[in-house]
Structure formats: C-alpha cells, structure tokens
Design a binder for these strands. Structure first.
Lengths: 107, 107
DNA sequence: CATCTATTTAACTTTTTCGTTAAATGGATG
DNA sequence: CATCCATTTAACGAAAAAGTTAAATAGATG
C-alpha cells in the first residue's frame, strides 16, 4: 500500500480523524485524555492510536506511566503534497490563490 | 459521516485512488476504459465508481451507451481546504511556501 | 512488595468492505 | 425486433475493520 493510501485510510475514520484534529489543536496529549471524550473504550482508542502510529500520523513518547501522543507533520505533508500536485483540479475559481501559485511557479 | 471522512474513505483504496488519478491525468473517460487496467472485474469497478460518485469525487454523464466519468474539483477542494486549515502542522521548514503563505495572511 | 494507574494485547463477535459470477437494464444496430 | 455492447444491480462468500471484556505489562506509590 502506498504511503498516501495508508494516510487516507488512517484518517478515514471518525475516531481517528477526531484524535488527529484534537492533537493538532491542543498539542501533545496522553492516551488517557483521548479516551475520555471519544465515547469508546480504552482498548479501542489504543488500537486506533496504533493504526495512526503505524501510518506515521502520530508519534508516541513515554513519560513515566503515560504515553504522550502528537501529530507528525511529515504525514500531513504527504497529503499536502498530493493536493498541491493536483491543484489544477481544485484551484479553478480561487482567484487569489491561483495568482499566488502561478507567481510561485513562474518565479 | 462528515464530508471529509467520506472523501478520505473514498480515496483510501488503491483501485479508487488509481481511478481518480487517472481521470485527473487523462480527463473524462468511459467506465469501460477504467475496467481494462484495474485488473478487476467490470462489476467491481462499477461499485467503486458508485462509491466515488456518492462521495462526490467524480461525476457521471451519459453519452449513448457509455457513462463518462470525470473528477469533481469541489471534492478535491474539501481536502485542500482541510490541509490549508492545518498548514501550521506541515509547513515548518518549507521556507518558500511559508513565506508565501504568510504574505497571503498579511495581505 | 502489594497494589494502583495507564496503556496495550488477546480473544472473540458483529459489521463492513471488496471481490466474484449471474442476471437485469438500456442504448445502438443488422 | 433480435441481438450486441456497456454498465449496473443482485446474491453470495471471504477477509478486514472496529467494538467489547478480560488479561497482561509497566511505571509509581503506600
């Protein structure tokens, strides 16, 4: 499976997208904090975190008892790059952005 | 399911991502042309196309016997917008782009 | 060191996804 | 109008995904 498909798969789930968005908004958080709000059990969150980890979307670091998670920018870049590669398909009509990007292209 | 999750789900499959990329590269194509290369049966492709259609990623138009498919820019924008909303997480170190976007921000 | 807290792994179940082949639908053509 | 071609829908099976509870692991603490 390509990196891109792995990344899309990882984000194609409400719980996981929620985790990633929350980590982006609030920064590094322990696994336990993510359990509280998700409405599912600890083990379920743990497995989601594993999927996100294996997809390279989050990184984990130990601090005593806890496991602190945070978003890895590189993974977000995978999507950003793909999006940019195909911008011809979505930029139509976005005048300012279009001008901006064509500036970028031409010098 | 949010639009974003639907979009990610639609692209989280090798066959479907392949279809979308091919349609972006070659423009509008009949369903039959997409079957040939994918290595799976017609009905399988047909179901993938339905998923892409329902996710808003492609549009269909009839021409006689055939069904011509193409990519819908709006769907690509869904991803682009999300990516842009969170660019702080992936732009670090991309000096030129960073400068460019901060220009955009400040006018 | 017994135990509490935080998290993960194991075992199991249910639901979803994705493929297949066979049948249906609908336009084009001898 | 009988049939061909392009595509979709139906019916079914196998594999993967996502949840649950129970047990295991590991650091912190009385």
């Amino acid at each position: 499976m390509t990196t891109l498909i792995t990344t899309f798969s990882a984000l194609a789930d409400e719980t996981r997208l929620g985790i990633v968005e929350r980590l982006m908004a609030q920064g590094e958080l322990p696994a336990g904090d993510l359990v509280s709000d998700a409405g599912i059990s600890g083990p379920a969150i743990s497995r989601h975190l594993k999927i996100l980890r294996e997809a390279g979307l989050v990184s984990q670091r130990a601090e005593g008892n806890k496991r602190l998670y945070s978003v890895r920018p590189e993974a977000m870049r995978t999507i950003a790059d793909w999006t940019m590669d195909h911008r011809k398909f979505w930029e139509a009509g976005l005048d300012r952005l279009e001008a901006l990007l064509s500036e970028e292209e031409h010098g």
